[in-house]
Amino acid sequence: MDFIGYAIPFAGAAIAIFLAGFGSSVGISTAGQAADGVLTEDPDKFPSLLILVVLPGTQGIYGLLGGFLIMFKLGLLGGTPVSLNLVQSWQIFFAALPVGFASWISGIHQGKVCAAGVAMAARRPETLMKGVIYGAMVETYAIFGLITTILLLWSIKI
């Protein structure tokens, strides 16, 4: 089949990056607002709360990672651009979905868990790490999404 251009894989990369970025920004905003509320009372807590606030940021990076891996796969970043047929294009598109969707939803919800963690750490600073661990539990599923995307991408034969 003839080379049909990169529109479909590009759509995949775009979805991975923007959904994940969306999830992360909502998540960080939720946690950040909670932290701001605490800081008005006690500005010294800034460094410790920062951990909880940036925690939902990793999803955005996973999405970015997925997007860039697609670009690597296409040979756009430091390589020779490959020629794709329709099936391969769609394969790349679908491979991008797990990281995009998992990061999107988990980012939003991780933000909520982190916001609760902020409230907890405000009252009892010694529980900070426990809040972080709960936040990290949500992130597991974004990581699974990323792993699936990576494995799917690697299994596509071009």
Binding site: I61, L64, L65, F68, L69, I143, F144, L146, I147
Partner: peptide, 23 residues
Amino acid sequence: VLSYLRLFALGLATAVVAMVVNL
């Protein structure tokens, strides 16, 4: 056991972000 795959995902994430910065 599958949860330990995060070691791989995070390791690769560092490498890829670094590659992008270099690029």
